[in-house]
Design a protein around this nucleic acid. Structure first.
Lengths: 352, 352
DNA sequence: CTGAAAGCGCTTACAG
DNA sequence: CTGAAAGCGCTTACAG
């Protein structure tokens, strides 16, 4: 490694040129009060001339400050391991920036119990953080929480699902409509026109449901736009246990046996289980997310396609975006995740 | 932001406990000579007890060192804009770590002129760097260059294509065999068994050719393994201009009109151009890389699938891996890129 | 409104 | 082989 070029920039050089002390320069750089307009202007001009960039390392070192970031996401349930991935991304980011004075703490809520969300939000606000990463699953409660964050001047990033007009630093997650749209496109490779499609929404909480409806919208929009005639049946399953699902599916298959089943979330593995149990081999199946149980069925051919949208990266980028923002960098405000298609052949190479 | 916990860790605390000066502690932390075995042992024990982690920011600040990283990759030619993406990734990484005392400099070589590679390698060695990112397109010359890097103790990362046994920090790029294998799998969605496939390798330099052959291997392996009978014709085109290609393709199509054409690299757009010119609409087409010219043909339906392997991320991760390694972190030594499938519907969301 | 001094946790000469 | 001092580029009290 080489010695740094003798930078005659830096706070000291600015002070010399402006004929003031470095303390005063520090005040204008950090927008602190107590500098006369004239001095301030003089210093700002020099800063611009020099294209001065503060040394972040020196700043962090001297200030002895630790950036504290809170992450509030659903806990991993035994119904779905989905949230493991974002958490992993959050932890990866945390470990990469730990040595730069950043501390990330996680909070979890139960997707089936709103109150846990409210409680955690309260704790976060009470403890005080410099930034927040949030998965706003409960719409109303999230909006309320974010309003309070704004009052406390806590900047925040939203991941996984978006909320309009929240003045968030960024949204990092899927474009749900397009995601469903792509799913419909993929069906082109699985079935022929005028065949029968069954769309399955599985979700207990109505609040989480609108998430799935956007995918459904996109799915239907494709066929309309492409002028493809298909029969789309739809069932909403409000219980997430296998038995309930099995009963409903059985009924549906007896009534209108589909050629393709599209499950709008990660619970596609339950449908695959149904396929296996009833030895259904001629019906195509697609759904969401790179989870062990889904991959198993992808491997053995029960599931044809999985769509995945980088849950781990959502967590990673979420934390990094807050960090960058706190470092005064500008951050892209909408970061849609790619819509990845996972098959039997490429799943080994998939990176969340 | 909150004050840092009064860490009684740190070099000073270690010195106190060991009853030595911080200078001596510094010596053992940095493995410098001139410490008695006894003192060294004593200090090391305390370091372990305290689980001491050096403060990187203080270290960088005090040492006044700049980490210098060189990147040697092909220049963007007007034949293909592919290398724009890795360069973009390199620059992104560079800008993110610039404020942490890292300087990344790029060097380019002409893929059609070996000598330019050799010249740049010499310059890099002469100037001296702390780390190197290399796209080892020319096999023999790269091996030679890397041997010299090892002599100079310059650690390096390989991107885009691999070289065996080079003691590189990491390889970051595609698994070529699997990439071809997946392409074959995708063909399942485009053609029926016993139809005819034309595989096209387009490359002027023989050195770059083995890259394509590995994809071809993977492609063929799929059909064998799955016991699918297809007729695979193959043509090698050693000129990259459209006219040469057009002539060869015309001939081939007259002789054995295929149902699917698979181009093993980013030059698939030239084949698409041929399709358009000759109004070929019933033949499927797939190839590589997210380039403007390819996307155009994907949009209008001439190209059915593009396979892409995150060229930008290769550059980004390449630089970051060197940086992490220089910071004493451990780095994953093989980082295969995901094998992404790009279609008309999802290309908007693709992130290199 | 402004300045001078101490200190963040290290590294780097220099002295012995 | 070891120590004491200066300094990296900032921020933070404190004094005026």
């Amino acid at each position: 490694m080489k010695k740094q070029a003798e930078n005659s920039t830096g706070i000291r050089e600015i002070a010399k040129r402006a004929n003031v002390s470095i303390g005063t320069v520090d005040r204008v750089i950090n927008n602190r009060l107590g500098v006369s307009a004239k001095t301030k202007e003089k210093i700002q001009k020099i800063i611009e001339e020099l294209d001065y960039q503060p040394n972040i390392m020196a700043r962090m070192l001297a200030s002895k400050k630790v950036i504290k970031i809170a992450a509030l996401i659903p806990s991993v349930s035994n119904e779905t391991g989905y949230w493991n991935a974002p958490l992993k991304g959050i932890n990866q980011a945390a470990s990469e920036i730990r040595n730069f004075g950043v501390m990330v703490e996680h909070y979890f809520f139960d997707q089936n119990a709103k109150q846990t969300f409210i409680n955690q939000a309260d704790i976060i606000l009470k403890k005080g953080y410099d930034g927040l990463l949030l998965a706003p699953m409960f719409e109303k409660e999230s909006i309320n929480f974010l309003a309070r964050c704004r009052q406390h001047n806590i900047p925040f990033v939203l991941i996984n699902s978006d909320l309009a007009n929240q003045a968030n630093i960024a949204y990092i997650g899927p474009d749900l409509f397009q995601s469903g749209y792509l799913a419909a496109h993929l069906s082109k490779y699985l079935i022929s026109p005028s065949q029968r499609v069954l769309l399955v929404n599985i979700s207990r909480e109505i609040d989480l449901h609108h998430h799935l409806l956007k995918k459904e919208e996109g799915f239907r929009a494709y066929f309309e736009k492409e002028n493809i005639v298909v029969d789309i049946d739809k069932i909403d399953v409000n219980e997430t246990d296998y038995n309930s699902l099995q009963k409903i599916l059985k009924q549906q298959f007896e009534k209108n046996r589909p050629n393709l089943v599209f499950v709008t979330n990660s619970r596609v593995s339950s449908v695959a289980k149904f396929f296996n149990e009833y030895k259904i081999k001629d019906v195509k199946l697609m759904g969401y997310d790179f989870l062990e149980e889904n991959i198993t069925h992808l491997k053995n051919g029960t599931i044809d396609f999985l769509i995945c949208q980088k849950p781990q990266e959502q967590g990673y980028k979420g934390v990094m975006s807050i960090y960058q923002h706190l470092l005064q960098a500008t951050v892209e405000s909408v970061q849609y995740m790619p819509i990845d298609i996972i098959t039997k052949e490429n799943y080994i190479y998939y990176k969340n």
